[in-house]
Amino acid sequence: MSKTIREQTVEQLGGGSSILVRQRREHQEMDRLMDRYRSLDDAHERERVLKQVVQLVFSHAFAEETVLWPAVRASVPDGEELTARVEEEHQQINDLVADIERLPAGAPEREAKVQRAFALIRQDIRDEEDLLLPRLQDVMKTARLRTLGTAWAAVRQTAPTHPHPVVPRRPPGNALLGVPLSVYDRVRDALGIGGSAVREREGDARPGRDAR
Score class of each variant (00 low, 15 high):
140 M>D: 00
169 R>K: 15
130 D>V: 06
155 V>I: 15
160 P>I: 03
89 E>H: 11
4 T>G: 08
188 R>I: 15
60 H>K: 05
144 R>D: 11
194 G>C: 09
89 E>V: 05
176 L>M: 07
178 G>H: 01
88 E>S: 06
37 Y>M: 05
188 R>F: 12
189 D>V: 05
27 H>R: 05
163 P>D: 01
35 D>R: 14
145 L>Y: 02
112 A>P: 10
81 E>S: 12
94 N>Q: 15
96 L>E: 04
202 E>V: 12
154 A>M: 15
120 L>N: 04
147 T>Y: 11
102 R>Y: 12
19 I>K: 01
141 K>P: 15
104 P>M: 07
109 E>G: 15
111 E>S: 03
153 A>E: 13
134 P>K: 04
63 A>Y: 00
131 L>I: 12
2 S>N: 14
66 T>C: 11
202 E>W: 11
61 A>Q: 03
58 F>I: 08
65 E>M: 06
26 E>S: 10
47 E>N: 07
73 R>E: 10
109 E>P: 11
61 A>N: 04
189 D>G: 04
37 Y>W: 08
211 A>C: 11
147 T>H: 14
150 T>C: 09
166 V>C: 15
195 G>T: 08
46 R>Y: 09
30 M>N: 05
140 M>N: 01
78 D>V: 14
63 A>S: 07
124 D>M: 12
203 G>A: 09
49 V>Y: 00
74 A>E: 13
58 F>N: 01
52 Q>Y: 11
207 P>H: 10
79 G>N: 03
102 R>C: 13
9 T>D: 04
42 D>K: 09
152 W>C: 03
53 V>M: 01
128 E>C: 03
174 N>S: 09
9 T>M: 03
58 F>Y: 08
27 H>M: 06
191 L>F: 07
116 R>E: 10
165 P>Q: 08
152 W>S: 03
133 L>Q: 02
118 F>E: 00
43 A>C: 10
88 E>H: 08
74 A>Q: 11
116 R>C: 08
132 L>K: 03
110 R>D: 07
16 G>Y: 09
87 E>V: 08
107 A>M: 07
119 A>Q: 14
17 S>V: 11
60 H>R: 03
120 L>T: 05
2 S>Y: 07
95 D>T: 13
160 P>F: 02
187 V>E: 08
160 P>D: 03
111 E>A: 03
36 R>L: 06
139 V>Y: 07
56 L>D: 02
120 L>E: 06
175 A>Q: 14
38 R>S: 15
130 D>F: 02
78 D>W: 12
4 T>D: 14
60 H>S: 04
153 A>T: 09
175 A>S: 09
91 Q>A: 12
13 L>Y: 02
184 Y>C: 05
78 D>K: 13
10 V>T: 14
124 D>G: 13
4 T>F: 05
163 P>F: 00
123 Q>M: 12
28 Q>V: 08
124 D>H: 11
140 M>C: 06
210 D>N: 10
99 D>W: 13
93 I>Y: 02
